[in-house]
Write a protein that binds this DNA or RNA. Structure first.
Lengths: 345, 345
DNA sequence: CAATTTTTGATGCACGTACATCAAAAAGAT
DNA sequence: ATCTTTTTGATGTACGTGCATCAAAAATTG
């Protein structure tokens, strides 16, 4: 039978009140007594019944998500997942709210973080923008004892407790590896070039993906020439136009890697005027559009991060922190999913 | 504020006892009263506080896992994940136990299921063997109100409540697609053959993977010739020998797909004597061995199902059934993971 | 209408913990 | 030894639900 506080009290020869003081780190317990109680806790293998504890303190954990108001399919998806989680949250004594901030902007994000430092929610998840001011604001939250999780986009060098997102460097390398393999047998025969499309080089994820992509191509497939990065600002119309121009300019493009959003423009351009040499296209994020494109062969591989998993994971991690519980590492690791036509969910 | 039973009682103009009777489907409530209470429950959006409920009835859910005593890395992994889940289970009012049965055998599995039908645990998860007797035994459990989840290997046609595993047909197709793409540019030039290695054609997963593999190759890459299936009984030594023989017999093998276990033998054979024409190898299950083989280039792609996810998912589904709660479908969908050197976890 | 059966109410304990209060004991200071 | 401060005990209430019991009310039957 699982030991309870009563068992601890009896075994340690103290009262329930003292056990309670030790468990909840309240003051007014002599050091020797505290140690005695703690050793009994260890010996009996007592674990606090979180359900009963939460019931007793009728505490609800207010968790706040800060998400960019970006119109991209992926961010809309994150948004949706947060809403869904919020609707489910009541059952689990969690109160999830969200704040939308302008995408890629530092000042509004920092202001929001500062405000939250005052409001003191039980946890904060944010899609980070990589800037020193943001880092400082996050560190201040953590210093105040508020757990912080970065979502989708990390904030290296900060004190954030956890990152719920993929390794973008690995994503770029994965794209490079697959592209190289798909094109390989011919790479030796003739000159082939690879086009790369990004949203903006100011965004950390895009930079990292590109870096991984370039470095692996350089080391493993040196005969493939990577063209200068095209920046489409994650905007379908712009992406579409840039690509059409490219296809007219060059006929030797064998592979294409799109690290950012704006996939609708990409797909449209590919369907309208695809270079004959183009034999492999890799893009990010599984949406209804990219899904269709995979199925009809317009895109060959989609690299994906599971937005639902990321949001649920962020919540689990924040809750575990609030309850002072351990997390299952394997469960919180966000995978880089490789989707092809045949393994679509 | 979340409504409680008290709010329901007050709003419906009945006592707590009556609300309780309605909530727990106890008898002794007039139909009109029951309907009134139920409509109030809907109107106020009452949801039972499962934590409090479980606390009150101090019920622990005994869940039983039936797993084959197979020595394969994957089954050992499943075994380990069940143990780990069991050690964590105390916190969540679940009591997880497991029974090992001889792999691939029908009679012992059926006997175990029959015994469980008497013991009436709160839920059963099993690695199914595809036989009518097993199906009947499972159906009997379900008929008795005991939720059943199949794990890793499904039992089509049975009344099992859920399947926690991958789509093996899709797995085979995925392997075929990747193999085809990796070999493609040369497929037209010369005759190339594809070797396929399975544990046993008596096992459903292997049959399905192979079926998917063959059908996609036939339709999308008809120039690739698939050799007759080699059966290695999932035994490393046997796999090793079979492959060495094959490599001596044929020099034109360009691709290899291993649908089953015994990967250590596969890797050893590849390292000792790999045909020069062999340019793509795909196998199943990420273990320390296959991981190393991916990293050193012996294997190109590993298709994987996350054992930890499968076990945790099975538990969540069984618990949700016992608590009469809904599950998050997306969370319980077991993905077919594609791993290459670059996206290893 | 009375007798019987069914339905409902009132109430209280239980689960394991949090938290507060007040009194009592122990330790430390003088 | 006395006084002060710190530590500990005893106790009670609360959280939201399950479950049991007994009495009371209402509905049904004859």
């Amino acid at each position: 039978m699982k030991p309870t506080v009563h068992d601890i009290a009896a075994a340690a020869g103290v009262s329930l009140a003292t056990v309670d003081r030790v468990l909840n780190r309240r003051s007014g317990v002599r050091e020797v007594t505290r140690e005695r109680v703690e050793s009994v806790i260890r010996d009996l293998g007592y674990v606090r019944d979180v359900a009963a504890a939460n019931l007793a303190k009728r505490r609800v954990y207010p968790l706040v998500f800060i998400i960019p108001d970006s119109a991209s399919s992926f961010m809309r998806r994150i948004n949706r997942e947060v809403r869904e989680a919020a609707s489910r949250a009541a059952i689990e004594r969690t109160d999830i709210s969200w704040i939308e901030v302008p995408a890629f902007e530092v000042a509004p994000l920092v202001r929001t973080l500062q405000r939250l430092a005052e409001e003191r929610p039980a946890g904060v998840a944010l899609v980070a923008v990589d800037a020193p001011e943001v880092r400082d604001a996050v560190d201040k939250l953590v210093a105040r004892g508020i757990p912080v999780v970065t979502l989708v986009s990390d904030l290296p060098g900060s004190k954030r407790n956890h990152y719920a997102g993929i390794d973008n460097l690995a994503a770029g390398r994965t794209a490079a590896h697959l592209l190289g393999r798909f094109l390989q047998p011919r790479t030796l025969e003739e000159g082939q070039s690879i086009a790369v499309l990004a949203g903006s080089m100011l965004v950390r994820d895009h930079r990292e993906r590109l870096e991984g992509f370039r470095s692996l191509l350089a080391s493993d497939f040196p005969s493939l020439e990577v063209l200068p990065v095209l920046e489409g600002r994650d905007d379908p119309a712009q992406v579409h136009q840039i690509l059409l121009e490219l296809f007219q300019r060059r006929a030797d493009i064998a592979g294409l890697y799109s690290v950012g959003a704006g996939n609708r423009g990409l797909i449209r351009a590919l369907k309208e005027q695809r270079g004959a040499a183009l034999r492999a296209v890799i893009a990010h994020e599984l949406t209804e559009h990219t899904r269709d494109a995979l199925l009809d062969g317009t895109i060959d591989v989609i690299l994906n991060q599971d937005a639902g998993h990321e949001v649920r994971s962020a919540i689990r991690v924040l809750k575990a922190r609030a309850d002072e519980l351990a997390v299952i590492d394997a469960q919180e690791r966000i995978r880089l999913d490789i989707f092809i036509k045949e393994n679509l969910p």
